[in-house]
Structure formats: structure tokens, C-alpha cells
């Protein structure tokens, strides 16, 4: 429909504008004041160093993680037909954390086809958690989504206690590294840590973008989706693998940054409606802006200290989650 298409193009242009502004503006926010003149005029200046080597990578990392976590949340919400389904509530993030925690605890250091062991282990952990939740849902067909979410929460708690166990058994250095990593943070230096998860994230995001009509159909119910010609089980497995892959990849970099996948897709649905033809792109862009914005806030809110961004998103997300639970349904 030309009118709908026009509306969607308008939304996308606005969001791309917001995204670009954030990309330019957020690197200037931080304890150390830097100016545009400094950055542009003298590449060897202190400001320029901070901008290119510290702030910009950090903003980009926030954008990557934010986009991925939002898209994963949106995907889970459509699949499980529940707005509270997120990488967190389904145990995916804790699964990834457990995988990564295990890698640190074991003191391993390896990489496979250019992907670090930490990322691989995080992916495997995410996959394990998703398989459990998916297995439960297959085991009892027609299980209410609330029960599924609770089983995800239970898996999440179970994995968290395994992480605690790992920490308990670790030496002090490893233990501290696990703890700091669990807080979730984007304090990276340089671009290597962004380039590594990027291919995995792009694969996941592309699959989900291509499956945007499938997400629409899944929200109308699995029976109807199958009746319209969707191979429902195959589609769900593809979506879960893609989401697990990209969540694993970004959690390996940033730690389990909570609630992004809950807040951003919900705001997008409120603003743009239920159609995933626009929601997928919108959630990725909004998620990118949201998390890099939260991280900019984290850099200044307790200056001169810098907070891990995971603390900010959790402080925002907790009340938001309660509000979503208690709000009257329309």
C-alpha cells in the first residue's frame, strides 16, 4: 500500500537521522571534555585520541549490542506471543553468561575461525538455555506463555547460581573478572572487540529481517501461521538459532546488559504499531540509540566514576517491567 509504504519510509528516515545524530553526538559525552575542533583539526591531540580510540568504539559497541538485544527481544515476543519475553526472561542471557563464565573460570584461551572462545561459549550457553525453553514448549503443546516465561526465569536463576558456583570455585582474579563482566559494560578500547561479534550479529539480524513477515504471522497464532503456509517448527528453530547466535555474540562483548530487549521493542510497538515489516528495522535502530545513550549517561552520572551500563539499564528496566505487568491491557 503506497500510503503505508510512505509512512514506513518516513519512520525509517527519522530513525536513521536519530541514529546518525547519536553516533556523532554521544562520543562527546564523558568526563573528559573534548571538542569538535580538537577532533577535526589535530589527529594527534588528546581529544582526538579519546574520540577515535575510546569513545567512538564504545558508542559503536553500545549500538551493536543495543540493536541486537532489541531485535532478539522483538523476535522472542512475536514467537512466544508475550511482550515480556526477552533474552533475559527466557534465560538466554544467563545461558550466555554461564558459557562465558565457564570460559573465564577454566582459564581457556582459544579461538575458532576467528571467533574467540568466549563468544563461542556464550553462544553455546545461549543455545542451551533456548533449547531448554523450546523443549519445554514442545513437550507440553499449548503451554500458556506465562508458564513458558516462568520456566525461562527458573532456568535463568538456575544458570545464575551455577555462575555463582563458578565464581566461588575461581581464584580471585578470575572471580573478579567474572563479576565485573556480569555487571555488563561497554568499556572497550579500539575496534577489535566490535569487529569480532559483528559478523555473527549481522547474520542474526539479516535472518530476522528476512523473516519479518513470519514474525507477523507468528503473532496471529501458530495454527493460523501453519494454515497460511509456514513451516512453523522450522521457522521457530531458525529464529531461535539466529537470536541465540547474535545474543551470544554481543553478551560475550558487553556482558548481560539487561532489559534493553524489553523496553525498546515495547516503545517501538507503542509508536509504530504491530507490523514487523517496520518494527524489525525500528527496533534495531532504536535499540542502538537507546543503549549507546544509556552508556553516555553511565559515563557522566556519577562523575568522576563511570558506571557499567548494565546498572543503568537495570535501574530503568526493573520499574518498566513492573509497569508492563500491572498496566491495564487494551
Amino acid at each position: 500500500m503506497s500510503k503505508d509504504t510512505k509512512k514506513n519510509i518516513f519512520i525509517l528516515v527519522m530513525l536513521l537521522g536519530l541514529f546518525t545524530l547519536s553516533l556523532i553526538f554521544f562520543p562527546f559525552i564523558g568526563i573528559e571534555r573534548i571538542t569538535l575542533g580538537e577532533v577535526l583539526s589535530d589527529p594527534s591531540s588528546r581529544g582526538s585520541e579519546i574520540f577515535w580510540k575510546l569513545r567512538l568504539p564504545r558508542v559503536l559497541a553500545g549500538m551493536l549490542c543495543g540493536g541486537v538485544l532489541s531485535a532478539a527481544g522483538l523476535t522472542f515476543q512475536a514467537m512466544f506471543r508475550n511482550p515480556l519475553a526477552t533474552p533475559f526472561t527466557l534465560g538466554t542471557a544467563s545461558g550466555a553468561s554461564l558459557g562465558a563464565g565457564f570460559y573465564i573460570w577454566a582459564g581457556w584461551s582459544f579461538s575458532l575461525a576467528g571467533i574467540s572462545g568466549l563468544t563461542l561459549m556464550a553462544f553455546l550457553g545461549a543455545l542451551a538455555a533456548l533449547s531448554l525453553v523450546y523443549g519445554f514448549s514442545r513437550w507440553r503443546r499449548g503451554m500458556p506463555s506465562e508458564v513458558m516465561l516462568l520456566s525461562g526465569v527458573a532456568i535463568s536463576i538456575f544458570f545464575s547460581s551455577l555462575i555463582l558456583l563458578l565464581q566461588y570455585m575461581s581464584n580471585q582474579a578470575h572471580s573478579l573478572r567474572i563479576l565485573r563482566w556480569l555487571m555488563g559494560g561497554l568499556e572497550i578500547v579500539g575496534y577489535r572487540q566490535i569487529l569480532e561479534p559483528l559478523p555473527l550479529a549481522l547474520v542474526g539480524l539479516t535472518v530476522i529481517f528476512l523473516k519479518r513477515l513470519d514474525l507477523n504471522l507468528l503473532t496471529t497464532g501458530e495454527d493460523l501461521a501453519a494454515g497460511r503456509g509456514m513451516n512453523v517448527n522450522q521457522t521457530k528453530i531458525i529464529l531461535l538459532l539466529s537470536a541465540g547466535l547474535m545474543v551470544g555474540a554481543v553478551v560475550a562483548v558487553a556482558g548481560p546488559v539487561a532489559f534493553v530487549g524489553l523496553i525498546v521493542p515495547h516503545i517501538c510497538r507503542l509508536l509504530f504499531g504491530p507490523d514487523h515489516r517496520i518494527l524489525v528495522s525500528a527496533s534495531i535502530l532504536m535499540g542502538a540509540v537507546f543503549l549507546s545513550g544509556c552508556d553516555a549517561l553511565a559515563r557522566i552520572v556519577l562523575a568522576p566514576a563511570e558506571l557499567p551500563v548494565g546498572i543503568i539499564t537495570s535501574l530503568l528496566g526493573g520499574p518498566f517491567f513492573i509497569w508492563m505487568l500491572l498496566r491495564p491491557r487494551v
Binding site: M1, L213, D214, N216, L217, T219, T220, R228, G229, M230, G273, P274, D275
Partner: peptide
């Protein structure tokens, strides 16, 4: 469903 009738019906073209 929060879809409009038109959005809902067009999903039938999936196949």
C-alpha cells in the same frame, strides 16, 4: 490482533 484488517488479510499472501 492489533493489526488492521488490511494488514491482517495481506498475511494470507505468505504462501
Amino acid at each position: 490482533d492489533l493489526f488492521t484488517v488490511r494488514e491482517f488479510v495481506v498475511m494470507g499472501r505468505y504462501a
